[in-house]
């Protein structure tokens, strides 16, 4: 009996794997759901707002009270090399660690298998200079984006991480790391927009087909924001509130995201 079960399982497995290996029939004219999950972590720990204690590269312990960032302008490259650009109107997301519904960017893309995903960390200059009537949803500077917008220096804050650290000399031992800067309106200034391209082939290519949800699971590591190309120290810098101040942060957040796995 057990043997039969094993045999059947083996056959079933074989059949499924066969099926999986076969290129499914994709219809590029049909759009299907693809979710991109931004899973915020701190090194090897899941990020826990307010309660989790972590240590940065500089050896300082810290807690995170707020983590928010914009991701936008999604593009996917099919294994056949064609590139699909998600329409502008559906391509802006504000990830907020305190709101789990915001952790997934829900996209609608042509059926197919994709080898890379590209997106921008931040809000591009076009949207940064757009008429207020166009700034809806997560881009509403009086609503969802009210605390992700510099009113005194017209522009979105791309990345915001607030918290506390015993090493911070600011009042209440807080730190506030806010980065933005889209390159300037009339005068060219600092540009902290980062284009992030991730290879999806080693950790599982998404196979997008209508009738199912495919999920690209990304890890967003706040330790990398604090210790990538530049080592951030709360003792040295507790407050970052300007485009220039945000440059080292931006250089770090350019590589804070990695592809973990894909759920097909």
């Amino acid at each position: 009996m057990k043997k039969i079960l094993i045999a059947v399982s083996a056959i079933a497995l074989f059949v499924t794997s066969c099926k999986k290996d076969d290129t499914p029939e994709y219809n590029p004219n049909v759009k299907a759901d693809l979710s991109v999950e931004f899973d915020n972590i701190a090194g090897s720990s899941d990020l826990q707002l307010n309660t989790g204690t972590y240590t940065n590269t500089a050896g300082e312990s810290f807690k995170v009270t707020k983590l928010k960032y914009f991701v936008s302008n999604f593009k996917l490259t099919n294994v056949d090399g064609t590139v699909y650009t998600v329409p502008q109107a559906q391509s802006y997301f504000l990830v907020d660690e305190s709101n789990s519904a915001s952790h997934e960017a829900l996209l609608s893309v042509p059926e197919g298998e994709y080898k890379t995903i590209t997106f921008t960390l931040g809000v591009d200059s076009l949207r940064n200079t757009m008429d207020v009537s166009q700034r809806t949803g997560v881009l509403d500077v009086t609503g969802a984006a009210a605390d992700m917008y510099w009113s005194w220096n017209s522009g979105y804050i791309f990345f915001k991480m607030d918290g506390t650290s015993p090493s911070s000399t600011a009042g209440g031992n807080v730190f506030q790391y806010h980065a933005g800067g889209f390159g300037g309106y009339s005068t060219p200034t600092v540009n902290n927009l980062k284009t992030i391209t991730l290879d999806l082939t080693t950790r599982g290519t998404p196979k997008v087909k209508s009738g199912k949800d495919t999920n690209i699971h990304l890890m967003v590591d706040v330790l990398k924001v604090l210790g990538g190309t530049a080592t951030m120290s709360f003792a040295t810098t507790a407050m970052i509130h300007s485009p220039t101040g945000g440059v080292p942060l931006a250089n770090n957040y350019a590589s804070m995201i990695s592809h973990d796995h894909t759920e097909n």
Partner: peptide
């Protein structure tokens, strides 16, 4: 000149800590 569009101007004094110190929502 930090504000580039009059439509965005009002947000600044409303939210400024030393001016009206309110939030837009």
């Amino acid at each position: 000149g930090g504000i580039v569009d009059l439509d965005l101007q009002s947000i600044a004094p409303i939210t400024n800590h030393v001016e009206m110190d309110e939030t837009m929502p």
